[in-house]
């Protein structure tokens, strides 16, 4: 087996790992949006917990030794995966408490959710073997997509002006984060998702959000657009843009007599 010097797409993390970033990030964003909007219904919190749990379950299906999953907690000193797991525990504990008593537990659960999605960003950044992931700009991208997607889902529970404004801000932050990331990383696999993210997920969504102040139902369409474009970008980032480092020789061997 000889690969030569060209990089190839890593085969270790597939759609199951991507699902953790997609569902976990959006779920965390939903928890944060729920805390900001304080909807009367507990459904957003329940859905956020369910999404984060589903993401973790998906990645659990990917690990080789499933019965040893508890070992993931062994290295909080340097591993962002361990830290993500501890953050997830906090989210579940505080989220469950928030279902029972939203004040003061929902803001605390939202803080834990922010830590959770931040850890997800750092997980990618620490992956030194994948140039598209190790760019420092990836952390803000992952956090901001989670915020925008979660706020987009939250719009289905309430279209309170505060939430709509937060959603608009999150979408702008995501566009800014993408702009920073794209200036550092160019990947053919991200061209189509990025185009959708900018044209539909940002410009289209912001127009719809502005119009939603007069026609609230349009916020639902904006939320869906922000969600789908963000999820697609993350899926492509994890499964398609993840070319490894490849091999490179700074010098070729000098053969023969000199």
């Amino acid at each position: 087996m000889s690969f030569g010097p060209r990089a190839w797409v890593q085969q270790h993390w597939d759609a199951r790992a991507a699902a953790n970033f997609m569902l976990g990030g959006a779920g965390a964003g939903l928890m944060i949006a729920a805390a900001l909007a304080y909807p009367d219904s507990r459904a957003p919190v329940l859905l956020a917990l369910g999404m984060i749990a589903a993401g973790l379950a998906a990645v659990w299906l990917e690990i080789g030794r499933k019965l040893r999953a508890v070992n993931v907690f062994f290295n909080p000193f340097t591993s962002w995966m361990t830290r993500e797991s501890f953050a997830a525990l906090l989210v579940f504990a505080l989220g469950a408490a928030a279902l029972w008593q939203p004040r003061p537990f929902l803001p605390l659960a939202a803080a834990a959710a922010l830590a959770f999605v931040f850890c997800q960003g750092r997980i990618l950044r620490a992956s030194k073997g994948i140039p598209a992931w190790r760019a420092p700009q990836v952390t803000l991208l992952i956090v901001s997509t989670g915020l925008a997607e979660g706020a987009g889902i939250a719009l289905y529970f309430t279209t309170a002006p505060l939430l709509v404004a937060w959603f608009g801000l999150a979408v702008i932050l995501r566009a800014f984060a993408w702009s920073r990331y794209a200036s550092a990383v160019q990947s053919p696999a991200l061209v189509a998702p990025a185009k959708m993210l900018v044209q539909i997920g940002t410009v289209g969504v912001l127009l719809l959000t502005l119009m939603a102040f007069w026609m609230p139902d349009l916020a639902l369409l904006a939320g869906a657009a922000a969600l789908v474009t963000g999820l697609w970008l993350k899926f492509a980032l994890v499964t398609r843009a993840s070319l490894n480092q490849g091999f490179h020789l700074p010098h070729l061997p000098v053969r023969g007599a000199r």
């Binding site: 080789g64 030794r65 030194k128 480092q245």
Partner: peptide, 22 residues
């Protein structure tokens, strides 16, 4: 005996030196 087979090390390695095989 400790490894959970998450393959995080495999994507962190810039030398594609790590494997996971059933």
């Amino acid at each position: 005996d400790l490894c959970i087979g998450c393959a995080y090390c495999a994507v962190a390695c810039p030398y594609q030196a790590r494997y996971k095989s059933s």
